[in-house]
């Protein structure tokens, strides 16, 4: 009660006058780069094969001879993933860009954005 009367005496904080001036703190345009951080999560590959393999091994008391199917599936999965990665790495190294590809890596997008900047 005491505080209210005291506070109501003065003018208080001056309200902002219309129109409020706009201050551009960051430039109002998109950057010509993307960060490659979101790729990391997407690379959890061969998880299903890994799970199957481990459960099979546990079931057969870690005797590999009874889990040949699972082992081969897991190895093949890893092999194909690594081969795909290698191809992409080499393409990036050579600076190649396949026309018509929809899944571009962050590096490839950066490359295009650099060639054709937005502003």
């Amino acid at each position: 009660m005491r505080a209210t009367s005291f506070l109501l005496k003065g003018p208080g904080r001056a309200p902002a006058k219309e129109p409020v001036p706009f201050v551009e703190i960051l430039p109002l345009r998109l950057k010509d780069t993307v960060s490659g951080k979101s790729n990391r999560q997407a690379e959890n590959i061969c998880l299903q094969e890994l799970g199957l393999l481990l459960s099979c091994l546990k079931k057969h008391d870690f005797n590999q001879t009874s889990c040949d199917k699972e082992i081969n599936a897991f190895k093949n999965c890893h092999k194909t993933v690594m081969a795909g990665k290698k191809i992409i790495y080499e393409q990036e190294k050579r600076g190649e860009l396949k026309t018509g590809t929809k899944d571009l890596s962050s590096k490839q997008i950066n490359k295009i954005l650099k060639q054709y900047p937005l502003v």
Partner: peptide
């Protein structure tokens, strides 16, 4: 292999 089986739950933490 046994240790891998015990740590199966963390398999999705890999990102490399």
């Amino acid at each position: 292999h046994r240790q891998c089986e015990a740590n199966k739950a963390f398999a999705h933490y890999r990102w490399s």
